[in-house]
Design a protein around this nucleic acid. Structure first.
Ligand SMILES: [Mn+2]
Ligand SMILES: [Mn+2]
Ligand SMILES: [Zn+2]
Ligand SMILES: [Zn+2]
Lengths: 141, 141
DNA sequence: TTGCAAATGCAACATTGTTGTATTTAATTA
DNA sequence: TAATTAAATACAACAATGTTGCATTTGCAA
């Protein structure tokens, strides 16, 4: 199955209509090895869609478990594609994020084992957001 | 030593001049058991200082290790007072943050042991940002 | 008291995010 | 294929958040 066809199938499987803006966003996110800053997505979308459309599109993708949002160490909003395990009910791709202070890249570290944290009595954990800031693989060499 | 005197001493020890806006911000943060949203600080400061002054003040406090900034699970910027261990060179009060989905409160969990995370080869860790989302102690009862 | 660096105020601007509503379009169905 | 319609988009208007430059004021030390 060609690449774009896969994206269209992804849209349909989540009850979305196939539109140029949506396909373009999915292309951008699937092709990137890093989480993509909102500003960069907007930049690449501005020829084919309004900014408000992009905001609403990202919100609905996130609700459906197609993409996830993260804030890097500087507060920049970034989006990344979800693993196939996610759906509208819940995201199941919790993983550590790595933020590089040199290239500003944010990487989803799916292979890193999530640590276990013991909370004080009375607190109930629901989801975890772990981020590490430092120097990434690319920037080390 | 009375409370306000302590805050003034804190300012002086970091080379800051004593001004109404700065004392007020430190009062707000030291009196709160939660990290305080930026919007709330602005609200309480608007009678005595300009918004730009507040932004610059917060930035300089953060640089000097008097306060630290965090984004909660919704991206809201919040500030909290630092433990005394912090200075301009580096923050030394890394701790887990707990974000409550009921009261929207963000708590600095100083007593929770920081987990150890093994990164993939090639990544160099510098600092850690761990957050847990769920229901806080107060909201459980 | 005076001098000056530090801090503030103000204007102007940029970015980011939200809401309401009219219009268009993708996909279903007749 | 054409009509139907719910979903998606465009546009305007606005709110919130954050930044920069510069003139003015103020805390503090000499
Ligand atoms: Mn991720
Ligand atoms: Mn904290
Ligand atoms: Zn890097
Ligand atoms: Zn709570």
């Amino acid at each position: 199955m060609p690449n774009v066809e896969k994206l269209i199938a992804l849209l349909k499987s989540h009850g979305f209509k196939k539109t140029p803006a949506r396909i373009r966003v999915l292309e951008i996110l699937t092709k990137s090895s890093k989480a993509v800053p909102y500003s960069e997505i907007e930049q690449q979308l501005k020829a084919i869609a309004d900014r408000v459309t992009l905001y609403r599109l990202l919100i609905s993708f996130e609700k459906q478990g197609i993409i996830h949002k993260t804030h890097d160490h500087l507060g920049t909003v970034k989006y990344a594609i979800c693993s196939s395990a996610c759906d509208a009910h819940a995201h199941h791709d919790e993983h550590v994020h790595f933020n590089c202070i040199k290239c500003s890249g944010t990487f989803c570290l799916d292979t890193v084992v999530l640590p276990n944290i013991t909370l004080p009595k009375g607190y109930l954990a629901n989801s975890y957001q772990f981020a590490i800031t430092g120097i990434c693989k690319n920037c080390m060499s």
